[in-house]
Design a protein around this nucleic acid. Structure first.
Lengths: 213, 213
DNA sequence: ATTTTTCTTGACCAAATGGTCAGGTTGTGG
DNA sequence: CCACAACCTGACCATTTGGTCAAGAAAAAT
């Protein structure tokens, strides 16, 4: 049934993945307008014309990059649901998003850039998927509040603060690096960042900080 | 002695201001690479060649925009110093930065974009002015901690959280607007945002929330 | 009034960019 | 071995872009 998909990866998938990876970096470093197909091609180690075989236009390639990031984002947000209470849920979400910021800084930047420029290609996602996810999480938080398991705070702004703070470590990674004497955060640095964020936010919403994650 | 500077504004200053204002918007909406001199010229209502009379290159114009923003940023940060303690200082800083996010969203986006792309034009500011400012504020916070006026938290990450959270309302304004049913935050919305942020962070660092600002 | 300086702008240019395409190569099923 | 499809790529093109320039128009200085 699966005549395609030659046991290994498949030329096509491997090529597309390589192109997407290069595109993510270039779009993150230069923005959509500043990125050139030639630059992406060079970074992917392929002739420019070949990119257009897999992705018809620069915009199509960009769209694919943004959608991929969005999916990763959403998937990681599930930790919020499988939590037994506010302390575990929020702590797990902070940890998850911080790990994403560390693992996919370029993706985070592309996302930030896309939103900053008015979300020209993922506006529909914002209005549907993201709006629904946000609504759902706000309800969860509100329930925790109603049950007296955390202080009454505005769930919407709590979510914004979680996004802002965690993504900051990716989007402004260069600034953080500069203020860290030019060196990127090491393991200890990231751990300390997560710890500090959890301390402030969890204390801020009136819950105990869970022991280990 | 001041033969220049004809009582009113002066043609030159007025022209430069108009160009800079248009440039700020265009750079914010399209990024450095996506912005074109023609677009800026149109928005400023001037022929393109005229821009090059006041600003020799696109990069020079961009540099001026970024430096202006940086100055506004720094100036507003002074509220931190004139505070009598952590509660007032942090609260005032949050208020000030939120008001800047509301008043200069384009500027904030240009700054974010600049940093995200590796700070090609303001790297030196990051290394000197910003680094010094950060160092100074960290000392202030550490002193408050040592004096037992707030919980022991990592001053560096507290600052990052303040920057991230407040700037988020400018940089991700479009996303916030979309999640607010397509409408920008009104006066009440901004007040509520500031209140929520102060509640979480001030509680999070173990100080009382000051009454009014 | 005349000279000198500052400013304005349409027309123009070289370079870069997204995208195309025809001809070729590689792989695959029969 | 052949035929067919998928894949690759150097050369090419139309358009856009940052930037220039020369010829003037205003203003200011004399």
């Amino acid at each position: 049934m699966e005549t395609k998909q030659p046991r290994q990866k498949g030329r096509r998938q491997e090529r597309e993945a390589r192109i997407l990876s290069a595109a993510e970096k270039v779009f993150a470093e230069a923005g959509f307008g500043g990125a050139t197909m030639q630059l992406i091609a060079d970074m992917a180690g392929l002739p420019k014309a070949n990119l257009h075989y897999y992705f018809p236009t620069k915009e199509a390639l960009y769209r694919q990059v943004v959608e991929n990031i969005f999916q990763i984002w959403l998937r990681a947000a599930d930790v919020f649901d499988s939590a037994t209470g506010p302390a575990e849920g929020i702590a797990a979400y902070i940890d998850a998003k911080m790990e994403l910021s560390r693992a996919y800084p370029a993706g985070s930047k592309v996302w930030a850039s896309e939103v900053m420029h008015g979300a020209p290609v993922i506006q529909d996602y914002l209005e549907t998927t993201l709006a629904e996810w946000t609504e759902g999480r706000m309800e969860v938080i509100q329930r925790w509040i109603d049950e007296g398991r955390m202080d009454p705070i505005n769930p919407r702004h709590l979510l914004y603060m979680l996004w802002a703070t965690t993504q900051h470590y990716a989007d402004f990674g260069h600034q953080i690096e500069t203020l860290n004497n030019g060196a990127p955060l090491d393991d200890a640095g990231w751990t300390e960042a997560k710890r500090a964020i959890k301390q402030i936010i969890l204390t801020g919403v009136g819950v105990e900080i869970p022991p280990e994650t």
